[in-house]
Amino acid sequence: MTVVPLKHNGRLAAAAVLIIIMGGLITSMVTNPRFKWNLVGQHLTNESILSGLLTTVWLTVAAMAIGIVLGTIVALMRISDNPVLNTVASGYVFVFRGTPLLVQLIFWYNLSALYPTLTLGFPFGPSLASFEANRVTTVYVAALLGLGLNEGAYMSEIVRSGLSAVPHGQREAAQALGLSSGRVLTRVILPQAMRVIVPPTGNQLIGMLKTTSLVSVIAMQELLYSAQLIYTANFQTIPLLIVASIWYLVLTTVLSIGQNALERHFGRSDRRATRSKKA
């Protein structure tokens, strides 16, 4: 019998329409002199822009590291049988996930209005040391506190969902082999939970990269704020915003490649199981 391939006229028509629309948009962007692509090229490697880019990168990495560590600790507290730990962790998530990040950043930046002096010591005992809040809560500290603590609340839910996705029988089997609770967590539970944790964590990292632009409200010179300083002086708003957007797209692409590599790494067991079933 002659096999006649199925025709997809609807798909071809939709693809043709999309190609025409995309071609029109690209042509409009390239030929429109108001985009001022020559200024975009000039400012793409501007010293102030590159300095803001480095600030955005280290702020993203540092805040995400704080969020992952803190989120893991809070997730373990959430699944603990200790009611005190569970209540404290739930309260932390409730507060930092329930209030806007912008408000948190402004709050940490103005912490000295509530506590002019920060004291390290016991609640009803002697103080070990004291510091002036204005000197301690610099713009960098306020940015890290705001971004890191907020991210920790979201990461705790991601880690908790990953840990909950591992069958309880895995823990029981590991304990039956005589493994300690720490080794059960690090050798059995976490490696399996990473398949669930990595994808949303990658999304959170990419989101954190773009969220760092909010620290411009506390006058921290990251990528967007650097672009704002330049176009405030030369009034070339659109070209400088395009420059910032290009660098954000570049960093997002790099992070997406790393996320895909991690997902393939932790998904090796699934691929092996699929190949064995096919065999």
Rank of each mutant, 00 (worst) to 15 (best):
Y115L: 00
P126S: 07
F122D: 04
I68H: 09
M64W: 05
G125L: 13
L39N: 04
S90L: 11
G41W: 15
G91K: 03
V93T: 12
E47M: 12
M64Q: 05
I66F: 03
T56R: 03
T56F: 07
P126Q: 13
L44M: 13
T60I: 10
N82D: 14
I49R: 10
P100N: 07
T56C: 08
T72C: 12
T31N: 11
Y92Q: 10
L44D: 06
L53T: 15
L120T: 01
A89I: 01
V88D: 05
T60Q: 02
N32Q: 13
G98Y: 03
T99R: 01
Y115W: 00
P126I: 03
I79L: 04
E47V: 15
I73F: 14
L120R: 04
H43C: 00
V40I: 14
L50S: 02
A113W: 01
V69Q: 05
A63L: 09
Q42E: 13
K36E: 14
T56D: 03
H43R: 10
V61H: 07
S28G: 13
A75E: 09
S127K: 15
L101Y: 08
G24N: 06
L85V: 01
Q42F: 08
F35S: 02
N110D: 09
S80H: 06
F94A: 14
Y115V: 00
N32S: 12
E47R: 14
Y92G: 11
F96C: 04
L54A: 13
R78K: 15
S90A: 11
L118M: 11
E47G: 05
A89F: 02
L54T: 14
A15E: 06
F96V: 05
V57R: 06
S51I: 09
